[in-house]
Amino acid sequence: MYNASDLRKGLKVQIDGAPYIVIDFEFSKPGKGQALYRCKMRNMITGNQLVQTYRSNDKFDEAGLEESTMQYLYNQGDEFHFMNTETFEQIMLTTEQIGDNIHFLLDNMEVEMLFFNDQAIDISLPTFVDLAVTQADPWVKGDTSGTDTKPVTVETGFELQVPPFVEEGDRVQIDTRTGAYVTRVKE
């Protein structure tokens, strides 16, 4: 159980049977009035935002979220199969549930999966992944066009901008939070 006075940015609570994360929080107190806790929260399943004012005697259940390490096995069309690395239990997520993570997901990759009431609601990838470049234009020496990046495609089909010296067959490290190039990986 949480009290309103426990509310702060990043806290996860349950409201009307759904998990919410506090994304903005302000303590208010109108002159001689009671303490009020103004909160902006995001539903962790639907993404909908909620703005609500609470009083100090309002109470919240914990969000009841559990995290497990899962290994990505394979996909079959729209179905992505994962296995719990401790219990070997397998579960399936849809392309929609995978979201943008699809750009960085490789076979056998270990991911952290978030569960609410035994239902997977989010996966988080390692912050940095190494992917092979499958398509890149050759670097033209003496190119003075002034551009210092060029587009390449990696093994997952994701396209990104990299420095001109990166070539087909190289491996590059990518920040999965932003999709940005970090460095070329020496084999």
Binding site: S28, P30, G33, Q34, L36, R38, T53
Partner: peptide, 11 residues
């Protein structure tokens, strides 16, 4: 709801 109105709508 006096305090809530003050904080949200008036102040």
């Amino acid at each position: 709801s006096f305090d809530e109105v003050m904080v949200e709508d008036i102040e």
